[in-house]
Structures are given as structure tokens and as C-alpha cells.
Design a protein around this nucleic acid. Sequence first.
DNA 1: CCATTTGCCTATGACCCATAGGCTCTGCAT
DNA 2: ATGCAGAGCCTATGGGTCATAGGCAAATGG
Lengths: 201, 201
Amino acid sequence: MPRAGLSAEVLTRSAAELADEEGLAAVTLAALARRFHVKAPSLYAHVAGNRDLKQRVAVLALAETAVRVAEAVAGRSGRDALDALGRAYRDYAAAHPGRHQATTLPLDDAVARASAGPRHAELARAVLRSYALAGPDETHAVRLLGATVRGWTDLELAGGFARSEPDAEESWQRAVDGLDQIFTAWGSARPVDGLGWQRRD
Amino acid sequence: MPRAGLSAEVLTRSAAELADEEGLAAVTLAALARRFHVKAPSLYAHVAGNRDLKQRVAVLALAETAVRVAEAVAGRSGRDALDALGRAYRDYAAAHPGRHQATTLPLDDAVARASAGPRHAELARAVLRSYALAGPDETHAVRLLGATVRGWTDLELAGGFARSEPDAEESWQRAVDGLDQIFTAWGSARPVDGLGWQRRD
DNA sequence: CCATTTGCCTATGACCCATAGGCTCTGCAT
DNA sequence: ATGCAGAGCCTATGGGTCATAGGCAAATGG
């Protein structure tokens, strides 16, 4: 019997395709084994089990999105960069729903550390660089940007914006405008007492 | 043998508790049956199956959060209302992680229509009322607010903000400040051509 | 060319979902 | 009171999944 040429790498890629095609829940050792005309127990030589397999898909997805986002924001700054970053995430999620879903899985600490997760935070900081935010403000901004992009992506993918006017794209542009305004204000103003705002001069 | 007093209502509540305690994935007909010292097939008289059960948990959670959010925003407006709305969602998710997770499940159309889902959109519009936004702007605002709150809640629940400075609460206040600024600007200005902004006068 | 490693196998057991069909208790009408 | 219909929970069954244990054979390297 010819060998199937299995490896963690190959299995992870195939699992990712399976996830995109039939949903993350369909990523099962048995289903994956069928794709390679192999029995399920054979896969345990390459991956530690179902949870491990899904985490590998998540790590793959995090790495892929990091690359795409990095390409998208290269050479851009300010509002343009915000738009590009968000769009990269949204496009990836739309093109690879299963992979995107995997990125929302809780990862083991060790796996998370070895993943491209931190890279995403760096990318957000890079995009915000042109706003010249003070240290803590930059963190606040990273969090707000991250929450907005993630929430937007999830809602869009869940069909929350579908079949309703106006177009989601229009709303997205307005959202980016809004974030750009906020970060611009943070860059050129200082918080007074946590409640109000004051232009620097 | 005494009857267990099962019903869709009772089962759903118990399933919700199970989800909060051990995660949504632990919500299984077998596990639920054990809680009532009953055999799994008995549950099929009350719920249509695993998927139906989880959707009922989602519907319950949507209804519960709608009530909490409504209470939280009652009598508030502007920034205060934004803060209260977001906090209500975040607190609910923190207190009931399993239920919250259930709300991210895709619902059957019929179930979604009968759920409190639309009520949430109404609540968001109510919170935004004091900004006096024009029709389309209000929709844009609902979407931005919804995405931000959802993304923030998910990231916080996933531990994204944990063990890192500054405190997540501080970031949240800044985020609310930012949204308040955006909506205030939208209320007192009109978009010119979808790109720029101009104060009304 | 033989020994070791590697790759995939069968066998097994536990857990889950879901359906089919049966028994018993409850409650109501006569 | 009694008899009956239906509600409520049961056992039996079949199919799916995960995961482990242990075995045979192909590939590899000294």
C-alpha cells in the first residue's frame, strides 16, 4: 500500500481547507483521514488529537492574516492604513471563514506565545504610529482598533449587516473615518481628568 | 419512578447553567440528562436535539441581555448611556460566558426572528437617540457601536486584555469617550461626499 | 543486506446523537 | 369507581467521533 505522505504541515493545510468549506465543526480526525484515504488513528502520528489539530489551523490562520495585513498596510499611514488593515482582516475572514473561526479559539499558552498573535499587536501599533500617540494612549488605541475590527468582522460574517440598507461598505468607511478622528484627537490633545478633552493649544 | 418534571423551559435553563460552568461545548443531551437523573432519549420529548437546545440557550441569553441592557440604559443618554450599554454587555458576558458564547451561534431564520435580536438593535438606536443622527447615520452608528461592543466583549473574555497594562477599564473609558466624540460629531455635522467632514456652521 | 525507524494498519472501548417502540403513571370522562 | 388516552420516561439499537494499544510492512541507512 502506497504511503499517503502525511505530515503535520500537510494535515493542517487540508484541515484548514476543510474548515473553510464545511465549517470548523466539520474538522474532525475521521473526516480528515477520509480526505487522505487513510484511517483516523494514522493521524495521531502527526497531530496530538482534535484540539491540537484545530489549534494548528488557528496558528496557520494567524500567520496568514499577519502576512496579508502587513502587505496591506505597507506604505500606508493614517486613515489609509486603518482602512487597509481592517479590510485585510475582513477580506481574509470572508475568503476563509473556517480559518477565521479558528482564530477565535482559545489557545494554549505555549501555542499562543509561539503564534503570530503578538505580531498582530505590532501591526496595529505600526498602523497607529503616524498618529504619534503617547505610550498608554497607543495601548488604548490598539485595543479600540482591535475590538472594532474583530467585532465588525464577526458581525459581517454572521450576516448581521446583510440585506439591510445602507451598504455595509459605506458604514465601514464611516467607521474608519470615526476611528481616524479619534486617534487624530488623541494625538493632538491630552486627556484632562479622564472625563473631558482639551486641545493642546 | 417519580417524574422529573422536564420541560423545554427547565431544560434550557439547566443547559444555560451547564454552559456557564463548563463551556458551551459541554452542553450535551447526555450531560443534561444526567443532571435530571434521566436518560438522554427522554429529552427528545421536549427539545428537538442538540442544535435546538443550544439555540434555545442563545434565545434565552439574548432575552436576558436585552432586559439587562434596557435597565442599564434607562434614564441615561449620551456618553453615559453608551458606557452603560457596553458595560451591561460586558458584565453579562463575564458572568455568563457560556450563555454569551451561545449568542454568537448562527441561528435559524425563524428562531432569529422570534428572538430578542431585533430588540438589541432597538436598544442601540435608543441609546443613540440623544445624538440626533440622521437616518443613515444612525444605522452607521448602530453598526459601529455594535461592532465595538461585541469585539471588546469577545477580546476581554478571551483574556486579550488580561495581564497587561494599563487596566482594561481605563481603555474602555477612553473607547467610550471616542465613540461619544464620533457620534457627537455626526450629530452636529453632515457628510460632504463620503470622504470629508464639515461642521454645520 | 539486515536492522531500525517510520508510516499506516486493525482492534477496542468510551462517549455522543438520534430514532423506534414499549411500559407505566396521570388525569379525565363516564 | 373505572376505564381509557396520552404524557412521560424507559430500553434497545445503530451510527458517528475520539483516542489508545499493539502489529505488520515499507523505507532508510550503516
